Simulated scan of single mutants.
Amino acid sequence: MATFLYSASMSLDGFIAGPGGDMSWLAAHLGANPTVDDLVGNVGAILAGARTFGGDDPYRDTPQEGEAFGGGWSGPQFVLTHRPPERPVPGVTFVGDLPSAVATAGAAAGERYVNVLGADIARQCLAAGVLDEILVCVVPVLLGDGTRLFVQPGGADVRLERTRVAEAPMGTNLWFRVVR
């Protein structure tokens, strides 16, 4: 059975993207990260939200643009959206509802990770009780505005258990298990 992991790089003030989904802030902080490098080999599928899939790319204008983990990973990708593109995208399956997206991504990943990308889809997975772990790569930068790591209107008390902390050349990696 797959493990559902929400992973994201986050500014110290809690943003995973700048205003308007801008990811250019992350480009200066990309590089070797042993925790992420180890994770990439254990990802069996990606489950992304539509905004994340179609959004800004920190690898823009480089050969890695449009590639998961900057080209370090390849495999099945599933995008939760109510508006799939008119033309198919190779290697990407567009799914219209969360239960189907979770089931197909989980089946594709097998015993490996389903890497959940995007704040809103991570929130939906958490609310559905399918999110197992969270990896946050805290980057030493302040953005001041943008997309937060987690937003729940009205608030939420989500209990997490820290399982790992690792220093990386460009920040600190924090790994948590979702307590159910």
Results as ranks from 00 to 15, higher is better:
residue 135 L to C: 05
residue 81 T to R: 00
residue 172 T to D: 04
residue 91 G to W: 05
residue 10 M to C: 13
residue 52 T to R: 05
residue 161 E to L: 14
residue 107 A to C: 10
residue 146 G to R: 02
residue 166 A to E: 06
residue 134 I to E: 06
residue 25 W to I: 01
residue 128 A to H: 08
residue 111 E to Y: 09
residue 121 I to M: 04
residue 128 A to Y: 13
residue 44 G to C: 13
residue 142 L to K: 00
residue 99 P to L: 05
residue 90 P to W: 03
residue 47 L to R: 03
residue 154 G to H: 03
residue 84 P to T: 02
residue 52 T to V: 05
residue 171 G to C: 09
residue 75 G to I: 00
residue 128 A to M: 07
residue 101 A to Q: 03
residue 8 A to E: 04
residue 38 D to P: 09
residue 152 Q to G: 11
residue 73 W to Q: 06
residue 126 L to G: 02
residue 79 V to C: 04
residue 139 V to M: 11
residue 138 V to C: 00
residue 162 R to C: 11
residue 113 Y to S: 09
residue 167 E to V: 14
residue 83 R to Q: 12
residue 86 E to T: 15
residue 80 L to P: 09
residue 95 V to P: 00
residue 78 F to W: 04
residue 135 L to F: 07
residue 146 G to A: 03
residue 53 F to C: 05
residue 103 A to V: 14
residue 120 D to S: 15
residue 127 A to M: 06
residue 155 G to D: 12
residue 180 R to M: 12
residue 36 V to H: 02
residue 167 E to W: 13
residue 103 A to P: 12
residue 34 P to W: 08
residue 111 E to N: 14
residue 169 P to M: 09
residue 11 S to T: 01
residue 7 S to G: 10
residue 171 G to H: 05
residue 55 G to P: 03
residue 79 V to S: 00
residue 152 Q to R: 15
residue 140 P to N: 11
residue 137 C to H: 13
residue 173 N to R: 11
residue 70 G to Y: 11
residue 22 D to W: 07
residue 31 G to M: 04
residue 88 P to E: 07
residue 110 G to I: 13
residue 19 P to E: 02
residue 41 G to I: 15
residue 4 F to N: 08
residue 144 G to D: 11
residue 60 R to S: 13
residue 103 A to W: 08
residue 100 S to N: 04
residue 37 D to W: 05
residue 168 A to D: 06
residue 4 F to Q: 05
residue 86 E to R: 15
residue 57 D to H: 08
residue 118 G to H: 01
residue 7 S to L: 10
residue 123 R to T: 12
residue 154 G to N: 01
residue 71 G to Q: 03
residue 116 V to K: 00
